[in-house]
C-alpha cells in the first residue's frame, strides 16, 4: 500500500462520514412519518384507506341472488353456500352462507363475478380473534329467500339503497373515471 492510497483512504473515510452525518443531521428537522395506529391518528385508519382496499369480506344478504358465483371463484373454498330451490314457490332459499375468514386470503376473486355487488370487501382489517371457530362468519341466521332482480328498476325502499351501493361497488371497479384527473 503506497502512501497515496493511505492518504486517500483517510480522506475518503473522513469525507464520506462527514457527508453521511450531514444527511442524518438533516433528519432531525424532518417530520417523522410514523402513523401511530391505532389511537393517535387524525382519522380512523380504516377511513383513510382507498376505495379498492381489500379488507374483511362482507355480504349483503338482501341482494344476494344465491348464484354461487363467488363460491366457485374462490380458490381456497373458504365460502360455503347452501342454496336450494323451493319446489312450490320456485324461489331460491339460502340456508347457509359461511365465509371462513381464517382461510380467506383477501384476493378479491369472489367479489368480481358477483352480479349485484352483494359480496364485497370492507376497509375493516382488524380480524384478530381468540379461536378459529369465531372467525367463521355465518351470515345466514335463518333460511331466507334469495334476492331476485326485478325486470325494471328496484322499487323496494329497503333494498334499493343497498343494491345501489352494491352496483356502485361494481361500477367503480369497471370504470373508475379519468386517471389523469387531478386530486
Amino acid at each position: 500500500m503506497g502512501l497515496g492510497t493511505y492518504v486517500r483512504n483517510i480522506r475518503e473515510t473522513l469525507e464520506t462520514i462527514f457527508e453521511g452525518m450531514a444527511i442524518t443531521a438533516s433528519h432531525f428537522v424532518r417530520k417523522p412519518f410514523t402513523i401511530q395506529y391505532p389511537d393517535r391518528t387524525e382519522i380512523r385508519v380504516q377511513d383513510s384507506l382507498p376505495f379498492r382496499y381489500r379488507g374483511l369480506l362482507d355480504v349483503d344478504l338482501e341482494i344476494c341472488t344465491g348464484c354461487l358465483a363467488c363460491e366457485r371463484a374462490c380458490p381456497i373454498d373458504c365460502i360455503v353456500i347452501d342454496a336450494e330451490k323451493d319446489k312450490q314457490t320456485k324461489e331460491m332459499i339460502l340456508k347457509r352462507f359461511d365465509i371462513d375468514l381464517a382461510k380467506c386470503m383477501y384476493c378479491g376473486l369472489c367479489s368480481e363475478p358477483c352480479p349485484t355487488g352483494s359480496i364485497h370487501h370492507t376497509p375493516e382489517f382488524e380480524g384478530a380473534d381468540y379461536s378459529l371457530e369465531s372467525l367463521v362468519r355465518r351470515f345466514v341466521k335463518a333460511p331466507l329467500v334469495a334476492y331476485k332482480p326485478p325486470k325494471g328498476p328496484e322499487t323496494d325502499p329497503e333494498v334499493a339503497p343497498i343494491l345501489a351501493r352494491g352496483l356502485r361497488y361494481l361500477d367503480e371497479f369497471a370504470s373508475p373515471g379519468d386517471p389523469k384527473a387531478g386530486e
Binding site: F18, E19, M21, A22, I23, A25, S26, F28, V29, R30, K31, P32
Partner: peptide
Amino acid sequence: FLMRVAFHLRRARPEMSWNPIA
C-alpha cells in the same frame, strides 16, 4: 457542515418539523 445539512434538506424537500419531540 450546516451548509451541507441545508443542501440535503433543499434537495429532498421533506416535510419539516422543528419540534424536537414530534
